[in-house]
Design a protein around this nucleic acid. Structure first.
Length: 568
RNA sequence: GCCGAUGUGGCUCAAUGGUAGAGCAAGCGCUUCGUAAGCGCUAGGUUGGAGGUUCGAUUCCUCUCAUCGGCUCCA
């Protein structure tokens, strides 16, 4: 039995239950999805989360009655009459778009739905299900359409599979990176504004570790650092096209009658550096890198912790090259992404190629060409990918790379975008070996994407238990009694030239200090008491492995050095 | 932006149309302790903000801000 079939049948039963419990319900669609299913309803009154158990109860009654799922095929006209009688206006809209000929409907008990199937034999075969949450969703995914009430749910054949899935959801909730607000990483404030992050010591340290690493990796791969101002006159954004195509996301303001923009992207400054002198084909490719902080006016409803914010910093670079260098550059970036991500502990990727959208600038021919090169680059790297039709940026097609975390959830981080349009708009050129002016091609690319988002993903991936090189506090000294405090400070002095060390001088029991260090996910605890003072050794406790026994300082330093190399 | 929900001390949560209570955290004191919570005391809140209803609002209503679950959008 296919899970999809089971879930889709469960969605019919859910619709059946809702229709029997509420008046004037109109049905949207009710497909099975990756981890469950949903059904959309147009209702007179809202369904609330607390109503879900009642709907579940009704569903169980329906399942118990063991209705057969019966398929019937009728003509398009008959279907129209049938769903008109049922007052299912959304279904009528769907029927209108179906080809003429036979249309299939499914019945179970008194419930009829437009549906191409397949279904289980009867409702009793629906295994174990759970309604999860209620949400608003636009009819057919367009914000111009009315908003329906969507109930998300899931179903499995066995109770164990259902419980396992619900446990995974719990686990994901426990790992929520927003715990970092309480753990001293960062904060957001009503009075500062939504989507704007304030970094606290741990967060600022983690951020700077990530940023330092990225800087070094770029420099040794032939990127040059550049830096643009955070505000620029709107003129340059008119040239770039952003003032037209990206307007609703930009912050405009006025200075002495001049219109300015807080930069939402870093490309214009990089382009100005490129254009600042005559470039030879010998100079290409030129790779400009900036840890560029940008501000984008994201709609209030889309903000989400660190994963979607209004002010963020990108590890952004623009590569200017000749057309015949494009594929090599793209392959280089793909390799770069994989190297960086592996170093942070991510080894599972998903690739998507997004093609020309409705709103675009540039020539159709260039778009087609660029799409071809992106696909060839992925093939050259032996990577599988999906095509995301019409989802490119307005200036060019792109490859999006998603990393999968410890719980198997995909996160969009890296993106590689081809651009034939901006070089045209800014009249960029290089001199070829014939002494003639040529137009370079531009690549926009980020590796981790937004430092903010990446930190959120990292924290959830590791459940705050960061690898040693990224741990804000690497070692905490725990003196057992006040007699050991001096020794603890002494050892700390020796270690803190290389490592981030704290000494817990609180008047607490050892158990209490260990508990706190464990909760704060500090990788190494060094326990010091009379025994250690006497033998001049350290009692090491590892966050993950527990008591490692007594060793001397040199041996501990070796353990640390070893662990630092372990970047997974 | 849209649909729905939520908003109580630093954190997690309780309570009520008659001006709020606990645990953790914090401060002080006692305790000097061996691998995940020692004991006691103290302090801390104009219940997100504004307005309204009421003799009286934190509780009811309206607006607003923020957050959460989604949709659309996206790094």
């Amino acid at each position: 039995m296919k899970l999809d079939t089971l879930r889709h049948s469960a969605s019919h039963v859910m619709a059946q239950a809702v229709k029997s419990m509420y008046k004037n319900v109109k049905l949207g669609i009710g497909p099975s999805i990756e981890n469950g299913f949903y059904y959309d309803f147009d209702l007179d009154q809202p369904i609330k989360e607390e109503d879900l158990p009642r709907i579940e109860k009704k569903m169980r009654e329906i399942i118990k009655k063991n209705y057969k799922f019966e398929k019937e095929t009728i003509s398009k006209d008959e279907a129209k009459r049938l769903f008109k009688d049922l007052n299912e206006t959304y279904k009528l809209e769907l029927i209108d778009e179906l080809e003429d000929g036979e249309i299939s409907i499914y019945k179970d008990g008194d419930f009829i739905d437009l549906c191409k199937g397949p279904h289980l034999n009867s409702t009793a075969e629906i295994g174990h299900f759970k309604l999860l949450n209620v949400a608003g969703a636009y009819w057919r995914g367009s914000e111009k359409n009315p908003q329906l009430t969507r109930i998300y749910a899931t179903a499995f054949e066995t109770k164990k599979e259902l419980d396992d899935y619900l446990n995974r959801l719990e686990e994901a909730k426990k790992r929520d990176h927003r715990k970092g607000f309480a753990l001293g990483y960062f904060s957001m404030h009503q009075e500062v504004g939504p989507g704007l992050v304030v970094y606290h010591p741990k967060g600022a340290l983690l951020r700077s570790l990530i940023v330092d690493y990225l800087k070094n990796e770029h420099l040794r791969r032939g990127y040059q650092m550049v830096l643009g101002p955070h505000i620029m006159k709107s003129d340059i954004w008119k040239t770039s096209g952003h003032a037209d195509f990206y307007k609703e996301n930009m912050y405009f303001f006025d200075i002495e009658g001049q219109e300015y923009v807080v930069k939402p992207m870093n490309c214009p400054a990089h382009i100005l550096v490129y254009a600042s002198k005559i470039r030879s084909y010998n100079d290409l490719p030129i790779r400009f890198f900036e840890l560029g902080t940008v501000y984008r006016h994201e709609k209030s409803g889309v903000l989400h912790g660190l994963l979607r914010v209004r002010g963020f910093t990108q590890d952004d670079a623009h590569i200017f090259c000749m057309r015949n260098q494009l594929q090599e550059e793209i392959v280089g970036v793909i390799k770069f992404v994989k190297a960086v991500m592996a170093n942070f502990g991510f080894t599972d990727y998903e690739y998507e190629v997004s093609t020309r959208p409705e709103k675009y600038i540039g020539l159709e021919h260039d778009w087609d060409n660029a799409e071809k090169i992106l696909i060839q680059s992925l093939e050259a790297e032996g990577e599988k990918f999906d095509i995301n039709e019409k989802d490119g940026a307005f200036y060019g097609p792109k490859i999006d790379i998603k990393i999968k975390d410890a719980l198997g959830r995909p996160w969009q981080c890296a993106t590689i975008q081809c651009d034939f349009a901006l070089p045209e708009r800014f009249d960029l050129s290089y001199i070829d070996n014939q002494g003639k002016k040529q137009r370079p091609v531009m690549l926009h690319r980020v590796i981790v994407g937004s430092i903010e988002r990446f930190m959120g993903v990292l924290l959830e991936h590791y459940d705050f238990d960061l690898p040693l090189w990224l741990a804000p506090v690497q070692i905490r000294m725990l003196p057992v009694t006040s007699r050991a405090q001096e020794f603890a400070l002494e050892v700390s002095e020796k270690l803190n030239t290389t490592y981030r060390v704290e000494v817990d001088l609180n008047n607490e029991t050892l158990g209490n200090k260990i508990r706190k260090a464990q909760q704060e996910k500090i990788p190494y605890m060094v326990i010091l008491g009379d025994r250690e003072i006497k033998n001049n050794t350290l009692s090491i406790r590892s966050l993950k492995k527990g008591d490692l026994g007594n060793i001397n300082l040199d041996e501990f330093v070796k353990v640390l050095a070893e662990d630092l190399l372990n970047r997974r």
